[in-house]
Every structure is written in structure tokens, then in C-alpha cells.
């Protein structure tokens, strides 16, 4: 440094300005050995995990606040706002099999679809590591297909939940009631319906965003954007998001449908 009292910045030598910043205090260090984009995706997913964690915790609190169905005093299970419904009695329908009692069968199918879409996503990331454009395109298309299938299944699940079961529930004032809305539902306490819409809806919105990102990724891959860039890291970052959505479903599946 020059012993100058003015605040004029000293011009760096041309060679120094062009050199990549590799020094410890120049930002040349990568303690996590991960790129900026991937790291920020991880931190975003961590914050998103807190959002979903808050939803599921709220579900746990509200569920424990309500009564539990007790077969020794209440007989066979029936819907009532006095206790929280048993999930396998609510979600027991399957498209095309009207009136058949198939507890959780459709949710099992949805879970399989989402796990499988996660597998095709890893296969796309793996193909990207090998710079295999055709394989990336193939696996991205499969992932988009399974993601769309999951969303369609959820649309069916919602319409069935809103439409209601064959048998209505007789409400406290004696009127029969089918299905669910935000104010009341035939399955149990009003908050049961609200939490169903909120938690599965928020997850479904994530899946929808994921499908949009994947479609964009497919277009960019087809146009050769990543090929020109020299790496397929974007697929990896969107893959992280996609697996996270699958991960959230694993927890929603356990705490909403199984427990």
C-alpha cells in the first residue's frame, strides 16, 4: 500500500485484475465443496422444511386436542364431530371402483407414483453427470409424466373428499350432510377438513411448481442450453427440490394417512 493520504483507490495491475479470485480472503474458498446455487437450494429447502414442519405440528396439536374414537364404548366406527376420524375410513375409495371399501389403496398408489418420479429424477441427474443429453431428456419426460399423474390423482382425491361418501353423516341438528367444505365436513371436526385442504394443497402446489420447473428444464435441455454451459447442474438443483417434495409426501403420508 502506498503511503498516500488521499482516498484514491490504487489501480490494480492488469494481470491481477484478470486472475481468478483464489485467495482465502478473496472468496476463493469453498468450505462446503458445493456451488452457490446448490447451497442456496439446500437453505431454501431447509426453510421450506420448517414451513411443512409447522403445518404437521399444527396437525398434531389439533388432533391431540380432539377426542379419540374408542370402539369399546362407541361400537363400530362412524363419522362424528365428537372425535377425529380414522384415516382409513375416510380415504377408502378408488377411481372406477365405486362403493368398494379399499382403505388407503389410492394413497398407496399416489405414494408409489411420487417415489417412482424421484427415481426417474435421480436418473436424469445421473445422465446429466455423463453429459448424455438424450438420456436427460428421456428421464425428465418420465419425471414430468409421473408428477402430472400425481397431481391428477390428487385432483381426484380432492373431488372425492369434497363430494363425500355414499352415506351422508347426520349432523347434530338432524340434517344429512355429504362431503366437505372449509366450514364443515361429514368426516369429523371442521378442522379435519381444513387441515386436509391446507396440508395436501400446499404440498400439491409444490408438486405443481416442480412440474413447471421440470418442463422448463426439459425445454432448456432440448435447446442445448446446459450442453453449451458445459454442465447440467441446473438439473441437480431442481432435482434437489423434487426429492424434497417427495420427502414431504413421505411425512404427510405417515402423519395424515397412517397414524
Amino acid at each position: 500500500m502506498a503511503h498516500s493520504t488521499t482516498l484514491q483507490p490504487t489501480a490494480a495491475p492488469a494481470a491481477y485484475a484478470d486472475a481468478p479470485r483464489t485467495g482465502t480472503w478473496d472468496g476463493g474458498n469453498e468450505p462446503f465443496k458445493a456451488s452457490y446455487g446448490k447451497l442456496m437450494m439446500w437453505f431454501f429447502l431447509l426453510s421450506d422444511a420448517f414451513t411443512f414442519g409447522a403445518f404437521l405440528t399444527a396437525y398434531g396439536l389439533i388432533r391431540h386436542k380432539h377426542g379419540v374414537f374408542d370402539p369399546t364404548t362407541q361400537g363400530t366406527f362412524h363419522f362424528s364431530s365428537a372425535w377425529w376420524p380414522t384415516p382409513e375410513k375416510v380415504f377408502n375409495a378408488f377411481p372406477g371402483l365405486h362403493g368398494v371399501d379399499l382403505p388407503l389403496a389410492f394413497v398407496a398408489l399416489m405414494t408409489m407414483i411420487l417415489i417412482f418420479s424421484s427415481v426417474t429424477m435421480v436418473l436424469a441427474v445421473e445422465a446429466g453427470h455423463r453429459m448424455d443429453k438424450a438420456d436427460v431428456q428421456k428421464w425428465l419426460l418420465w419425471t414430468i409424466l409421473f408428477g402430472t399423474m400425481f397431481l391428477s390423482s390428487q385432483a381426484w382425491e380432492w373431488s372425492h373428499f369434497i363430494g363425500g361418501h355414499v352415506e351422508p353423516t347426520i349432523m347434530a341438528d338432524g340434517t344429512p350432510f355429504f362431503g366437505a367444505n372449509l366450514a364443515m365436513n361429514q368426516y369429523g371436526p371442521p378442522l379435519f377438513g381444513d387441515l386436509f385442504f391446507f396440508i395436501t394443497g400446499f404440498h400439491g402446489t409444490h408438486v405443481f411448481s416442480g412440474v413447471c420447473l421440470l418442463v422448463w428444464c426439459f425445454i432448456a435441455t432440448t435447446n442445448g442450453t446446459f450442453e453449451k454451459r458445459g454442465h447440467y447442474e441446473m438439473i441437480e438443483k431442481i432435482g434437489l427440490y423434487w426429492h424434497f417434495v417427495d420427502l414431504v409426501w413421505v411425512f404427510v403420508f405417515t402423519f395424515f394417512y397412517l397414524v
Partner: peptide
């Protein structure tokens, strides 16, 4: 790297506490 693994895992421990506390509260 180990530091990245812990950076992601340690904050989720807060969620475990949150779940236990609020389910008891419920």
C-alpha cells in the same frame, strides 16, 4: 462435506422439539 451435512441436520432438531412440545400441549 461433514460441515454441510451438519448445517442441514442440526436446525431440523428444532422441529423435533416443536413437535413434542405442541403435541403434549394439544
Amino acid at each position: 462435506t461433514k460441515s454441510l451435512i451438519w448445517t442441514i441436520l442440526v436446525p431440523t432438531a428444532l422441529l423435533v422439539w416443536l413437535v413434542v412440545a405442541l403435541v403434549t400441549e394439544g
